[in-house]
Design a protein around this nucleic acid. Sequence first.
DNA 1: ATAGCGATGTTCT
DNA 2: GAACATCGCTATA
Length: 177
Amino acid sequence: MAPKLLGMLVAKGDLGLVITEVEAYGGRDDEASHAFKGLSRRNSSMFADGGTLYVYLSYGVHNCINVVTGERGVGQAVLVRSGIIVALTNVSSGAADLRGQVVQGPGRVGKGLGAELSDDGVDLLGAGCWRLLDSRKSLSLEDAPIVCSTRVGISKAKDAPWRFEVGLANLGLGSVR
DNA sequence: ATAGCGATGTTCT
DNA sequence: GAACATCGCTATA
């Protein structure tokens, strides 16, 4: 699921992010995952249904966002690390102009979208304020090369090649949808 | 260009 | 009391 999220659009209201970099985190089998030690107050939304938003406070400073990708109870999620902030030109269809601000780093992604801890656990697949839309076709990203490497800023399970990026050059200009 | 460090709060040992 | 899925500023080369 992680590489599939590249080129998709996460939106909060009329603000969107075209995803360009992610990291995959497993459930109880991944030492680097917040879900490794099982359910807790902080990570409970990781164990919700796939398509749920998981927002956590990083280093007491940054709100970072994940898309839950596992079945209910598994605790699997994908951290959104970089992307392009865009203003939606049509909120209901998710159309957006691709000229936007590049944001790199999960803290800046959360800040750019205005993610709050109160957004933790919301459904991304319904018709609510937060939505996840598949904009890959309109971006012609389906055959774009994906760079795979190890995850950043962790001390355990350092060797798992679960970080995925698309080069900005592959996005071109134009609009989404 | 690279390294070090403080901010800041929750979680785990 | 330590670690932490980070960032931005400052210092050093």
